[in-house]
Computed example of a mutant assay.
Amino acid sequence: MRLTVACLLLAYAVALSSSATVIENGMPILWGHTGTQLTDLPIENGVVNPDPWHFLHRLTLYRLMIAATDPYMGTMGPNPTDSPMWGLPLELAWMLTSGRLADPTAETTCGHQTGDTMCISTKSFWGCANYFVSAMPFLSAAQQGLMGPEIQVQLQIPVGVQDYCTTYADCSASFPDAMSKWDAFFKDLVTPADPTLPENERKDAVLGLFWAAQSSSIRSSSGCNARRNLFSSTELSFSNSWLNSAEYVAAARFQSNLENSVRFITPLPSRILLEGDVAPNIPDLSETENHILQIFNWMQSIDSLLAGRLVPTWQNAMCSVRTREEGRKMLENLLLDSTYATSSFLSIVTGMALSC
């Protein structure tokens, strides 16, 4: 990756920011410093060899995937940022600016202000979990020919680190369900299984394949869970809620385009949560950050009271194009509208599930 002095200075300024920022000039942060073609990534002996533990390299993987799939995303809408893949680089941007990609043990300066601000620590739960929704789809997209004919990719891995797959063959052997779902998504983009579907149903089908692949990748990241113990119990609880939230948006087939993703990612906590942080009364977080943390806590409490049945009930309710449209609106109200009655959410979801 060709890094300029300006890029390094900008990265340093971002790392010092007092609040998490995911967008600049209408694009994910540092987007202008990513590569726009495969040759911007390291290549050794004809094999593309990016370093996914460098923020700009990982962000470049997303940029290349978005560019490669955009010609097939017409059903998503007329705007160039309507692809559901935009949510992925924005989520990575939030992890960077909120400090979640840095070494949580502070045994190294990886990701810290005093070290390499573009470094993604292999010890970070967040950097680990995100690996599975960046490396896997990129390897699949390359295998399916979206990056060009016969492209070979071998991802770099830090010395002494063993628990990450780095090639398409590796990932397919270790995580066959996730990789087969990414393959199905990319194949269907290029050659739809049913090209006669009405536009709204085709859009729903594409989103269904996308979220099936992303959800399977997140489940494949279970090996990252031990890293959560390096954070406070409050941050650990939040990470549980974050993982659960993926189940809700996946079932509703949320269109994670740039505009929608900014609205839902911006309220996430702009720093790592500490012991003693209790929403909605965390003084250095905004009202919207406190609200979304309070909602996450409420959903965990309700799920506990229902003996873990809230997510399955929601998934059962998301049984048609119509109910998924309603579900997306309900999630928007619940997470972004502080006046929305949580009791109505539970009763509506239960009623929807019974009617399916």
Rank of each mutant, 00 (worst) to 15 (best):
G111R: 03
I151V: 14
V159S: 14
S124L: 07
L258G: 03
L16R: 05
M85H: 12
N200G: 01
M85D: 08
N297I: 02
D188A: 08
T350S: 13
P158M: 04
L230E: 08
P149M: 07
M136W: 12
G111W: 09
P158R: 04
L56M: 07
C7D: 02
F55E: 01
L335M: 13
I302M: 15
W242V: 01
E199K: 06
S344F: 07
R227F: 11
I151M: 12
Q315E: 09
T350Y: 13
E275P: 03
A11D: 04
D82V: 06
N130K: 03
T117N: 13
M85G: 07
L92P: 02
A141T: 03
T166R: 15
A246T: 06
V48N: 11
N257V: 04
S17R: 09
R2Y: 13
I23G: 01
Q37A: 08
E91D: 04
H33W: 15
A173P: 00
W94H: 15
L96T: 10
N281L: 12
T4I: 00
A106H: 15
K123Q: 12
Q156V: 02
A169T: 05
V14P: 00
G208M: 01
P50Y: 08
P149N: 14
R58L: 03
E325F: 10
Q162N: 10
A102Y: 10
E44A: 11
P80H: 14
D170G: 10
L354R: 15
L88I: 09
D70L: 08
